[in-house]
């Protein structure tokens, strides 16, 4: 089995978010960067698959220098090799462009399965895996909670509104992982040490044969502006004992908020 994993470097969910001066992105200065939490399930599933069926695992990340640590984190967990896709042209890419860049890097690798997280936390686009599947011309199962394969076919389960559905198909395919699929392992000390010595392959736009394609003027969607949310009107705490509070809440929900 040849297994690919795509990981995204994202701000820690607890990070204080400040919008950059040009209002096109957030300001990354001083922000702690982590592997997007859902991608941890993708890494884990790739490792388990290799343990079961043998083969090799490769992790890909499109991003600036912040992606290096995230790729090392994947290696430390046991992924065999890492590819860092980096170019000034790839700055602040939209999901479709990200999927195109990943497809260019993955398409000739002979991969049987590609694992992604279901969404890159922060951006929360929920788009890249299904786009990647289409661009690679392979089937997909997204936001999966269960997964099994014999190396030729697969069976996966995903949650939909009020139900679970089973998807069956053939490999190669792209999968995006949801919480519940597995319990990701932590990197071991030995793994961390070994990962430090491993080489991370760097590929730029020219190496992928996509030079010029992702210049800002060619992108199909642009950020016009990032802004802070309108702040909620300050809430109020209700007075009195439990009975009095419940009575005033009932009144307010009925007459002021009009939601009951």
């Amino acid at each position: 089995m040849k297994i690919a994993v795509c990981v995204k470097a994202v701000p820690d969910t607890d990070a204080k978010i400040v919008i950059a001066g040009d209002k096109q992105n957030i300001d990354y200065a001083g922000v702690r960067i982590v592997t997007s939490p859902y991608d941890e399930f993708a890494i884990e599933e790739a490792l388990r698959l290799k343990e079961k069926l043998g083969g090799e695992t490769t992790v890909f990340s499109v991003g600036g220098k912040e992606a290096t640590d995230v790729l090392r984190d994947s290696l430390a967990r046991g992924i065999d090799s890492a590819v860092h896709i980096q170019d000034d042209e790839f700055d602040n890419l939209d999901p479709l462009s990200t999927a195109k860049v990943l497809a260019a890097a993955i398409k000739d690798g002979g991969f049987d399965a590609v694992f992604c997280g279901q969404q890159g936390v922060g951006g929360d686009n929920n788009q890249v895996p299904a786009m990647l599947a289409e661009l690679l011309g392979v089937p997909q199962a997204t936001i999966i909670l269960k997964f099994e394969t014999d190396g030729t076919t697969f069976k996966a389960e995903r949650e939909i509104e009020g139900a679970h559905e089973t998807i069956e198909g053939t490999l190669p395919a792209v999968f995006s992982t949801q919480k519940g699929l597995n319990e990701p392992r932590y990197p071991s000390i030995k793994g961390v040490m070994a990962a430090r010595r491993k080489e991370i392959v760097v590929k730029d736009a020219a190496a992928l044969g996509v030079k010029g394609q992702f210049e800002k003027a060619n992108r199909k969607v642009k950020v016009k502006e990032m802004a802070l949310p309108a702040s909620r009107p300050l809430g109020r705490k209700l007075d009195g004992d439990a009975d009095a509070q419940v009575k005033s809440l009932m009144d307010l929900l009925r007459t002021e908020a009009r939601v009951i």
Binding site: L96, Q127, P129, A130, E134, Q140, E159
Partner: peptide, 23 residues
């Protein structure tokens, strides 16, 4: 933006080579 759309719309966007903004 439902479970089905999260699976379908990005695929259609890629096929049309068109952008998608979600949620």
């Amino acid at each position: 933006n439902t479970a089905l759309s999260k699976d379908l719309l990005p695929r259609v966007a890629a096929r049309l080579d068109a952008p998608l903004v979600s949620d």
